[in-house]
């Protein structure tokens, strides 16, 4: 079916975020220019695409700036302890495998204090989607360096430059056994929406590392002029799509993070295995 030329003009149908936001909770607590709000919006659009009942969605978080996300969204929401979101979520998912369980966590929450839970969740391949909001800093406590702070960056606890090499969240998730691993940025917001949607559709542990900006702490301490400057330098110019990487000359790829779906395999999911291999065997034995 051909579309008349004039209709090819973009027709704006803005997304109705109110469908998923709890009334009266905005403005959120995040600073001006913080990328978390952009990521939250992409997450809501991705969840909307799933077309599932809000009663069957559970959003779990730990502690930190990004972990305030559940308070704004109209699902079953759980704001837990620093680093422990994935463990609380594992309990919920195992008790209610029919629920869609999403963990919203920060880089410090997921990879430092919660690092053990992170790798073991990936290993189990339990059907949880972990969205890691990576702003490379501890924002809530005032800008200390995190496990993803780049070398030599300034933070309130690395005034002379960070000497700890950062984690590559995606490489770690993949090595630990996650069956869907992707990276997105707040800048590439439509691509991020699609990536989160794919992660949510995946059966098994899915991890999306989301690069977003903390202009208040990381930006100011590391001489970024604005949130926009950070988004351009770190998210747009600091990453390269996995779809383009083979077509680009090496100098255009060097030092950049890969964006897009980086790893996707099929492996038995934990709750299904539990039902099939544990419960069935146990019940057969007791008969």
């Amino acid at each position: 079916m051909s579309v008349p030329a004039e209709k090819k003009e973009k027709i704006s149908v803005p997304f109705d975020y109110n469908k998923y936001l709890r009334p009266g909770k905005l403005p959120h607590i995040w600073c001006p220019g913080c990328g978390h709000g952009i990521v939250l919006k992409a997450m809501l659009r991705a969840i909307d695409k799933l077309g599932i009942d809000k009663d069957n969605v559970c959003v779990v978080s730990g502690i930190g700036c990004s972990s305030r996300t559940p308070g704004y969204v109209d699902f079953n929401t759980l704001h837990t302890l620093h680093g422990r979101a994935l463990s609380f979520a594992t309990g919920i998912k195992l008790a209610r495998p029919d629920m869609k369980v999403i963990v919203v966590t920060g880089d410090g929450d997921a990879l430092a204090i919660g690092g053990n839970h992170f790798i073991h969740t990936c290993r189990r391949n339990i059907d949880i989607t972990a969205l890691v909001f990576t702003n490379a800093i501890y924002g809530m406590t005032g800008g200390q360096y995190s496990p993803t702070t780049p070398l030599e960056s300034i933070a309130t606890t690395s005034r002379y430059g960070n000497i700890e090499p950062p984690f590559d969240t995606c490489e770690m998730a993949k090595a630990a056994g996650a069956t869907f691993v992707a990276r997105g940025t707040a800048y590439h917001t439509l691509e991020l929406e699609k990536t989160i949607y794919e992660a949510l559709m995946h059966k098994g542990t899915s991890v999306v590392d989301i690069i977003d900006a903390c202009p208040t702490y990381f930006g100011r301490m590391n001489k970024y002029k604005s949130a926009t400057h950070m988004m351009e330098a770190m998210e747009k110019d600091g990453t390269v799509s996995v779809k383009q990487v083979d077509k680009l000359p090496p100098e255009k790829v060097a030092g950049k993070m890969l964006r897009g779906v980086l790893h996707k395999i099929d492996r038995p999911e934990y709750c299904e295995q539990y039902a099939l291999l544990v419960q069935e065997k146990a019940q057969a034995k007791s008969k």
């Binding site: 997304f15 995040w30 978390h36 919006k41 917001t189």
Partner: peptide, 8 residues
């Protein structure tokens, strides 16, 4: 503008 606005 909408897509990249962090603040709804």
């Amino acid at each position: 503008c909408d897509l990249r606005c962090p603040d709804f």
